[in-house]
């Protein structure tokens, strides 16, 4: 196993007029070759901020406070902006943005937009680039003749495939997919997920898959990180997260998923709502909603500890069970 991406102690805040929103607090994770890491959590838990921070593309007023992101041993956050854009983004790590199907430029053809990375990064001529684009389109299961089409002539599923093709253009080793199927219908969603699985194998890709949909995570991810209030609260292989979760939040989250098959059990829910990250409660951030919270949880914040090999939990319940 080789590690392709290593994030350590990454913290990001948004400096708003109302105060500092601490959107990401000391997040660390590792991504191995040919692995899909699923990142799940409620809206506002910092999933997308994590993706942007890894790319070094946090929109203002956001700012990366500390931490490092290492790809092939290079800390990309330390690189100057133009070097990072030239050598790292798209070449080594690329991203399928949330709502990406709406981010295609309506006045350019698909071919032109997909050819751009080849022209700017690799100095291809337009003709060579378009030839490459045809290959790309074929790879994601689209008709190569689409190069001449405009985005409005494509359906949602086709646009999503095109955007994935764009992310794969320069053959990066890591692709971050932020809610890649959220706007799509289930039939198309399953086709896109199948495509990602195939690409992972054929191209030996690693994915970070960000979604609020736990079922999609189960369908795809080898490892899962559960986020709450800007922190990773549980991290482990997807078998552990889904079949034997430790953290009370993960447990409740899994129990709240409506299931299509099997007996109809009462759905659980988590009362209350996630904390405001400008003035988060002291102690464990989940304590106001946690059924097992104790006095200590309200005062001190637990660390992320390794309870089994490769299984990390941030909860006082498991104190002293470090392996």
């Amino acid at each position: 196993m080789t590690t392709v991406l290593e994030v350590s102690n990454l913290s990001t805040s948004y400096m708003t007029f109302r105060g500092v929103v601490r959107a990401l607090e000391k997040v660390s994770l590792k991504l191995e070759k040919e692995e899909i890491l699923g990142i799940a959590g409620e809206s506002g838990c910092g999933k997308s901020t994590l993706a942007w921070s890894i790319m070094g593309l946090v929109p203002p007023p956001g700012k990366i406070i500390e931490g490092s992101v290492k790809i092939d041993g290079i800390d990309i956050l330390k690189l100057p902006e133009n070097e990072r854009r030239k050598k790292i983004l798209w070449e080594k790590i690329s991203m399928v943005f949330q709502g990406a199907i709406n981010s295609l430029n309506p006045v350019y053809t698909i071919g032109y937009q997909l050819a751009e990375p080849f022209i700017y990064h690799r100095n291809y001529t337009k003709k060579e680039a378009l030839e490459k684009v045809r290959e790309l389109l074929k790879m994601v299961g689209l008709n190569p003749e689409l190069v001449k089409r405009y985005p409005h002539e494509l359906s949602g599923g086709m646009k999503q495939r095109a955007v994935i093709a764009m992310a794969l253009a320069l053959e990066p080793s890591v692709v971050i997919a932020d809610e890649p199927t959220t706007a799509l219908d289930v039939v198309i969603q399953s086709q896109i997920l199948n495509l990602m699985k195939k690409l992972k194998q054929e191209k030996r890709l690693s994915f970070i898959l960000i979604t609020h949909d736990m079922s999609v995570i189960a369908e795809m991810a080898d490892k899962v990180a559960i986020m709450y209030a800007g922190r990773i609260v549980e991290y482990g292989s997807s078998d552990i997260i889904f079949n034997n979760p430790y953290h009370p939040y993960t447990r409740l989250l899994i129990k709240s998923i409506p299931r299509l098959r099997g007996p109809i059990e009462k759905l659980h829910y988590i009362p209350g709502e996630p904390p405001n990250l400008i003035s988060a409660p002291p102690g464990c951030k989940f304590n106001p909603r946690c059924p097992q919270a104790t006095e200590r949880c309200r005062k001190e914040e637990p660390d992320l500890i390794e309870v089994e090999k490769g299984h990390f939990v941030r909860c006082w319940l498991y104190e002293g069970r470090e392996s």
Partner: peptide
């Protein structure tokens, strides 16, 4: 087409 919260699904195509 509907995905399910069962992690063994990741090994197969739907």
């Amino acid at each position: 087409a509907i995905p399910e919260p069962d992690p063994s699904n990741r090994h197969k195509l739907r």
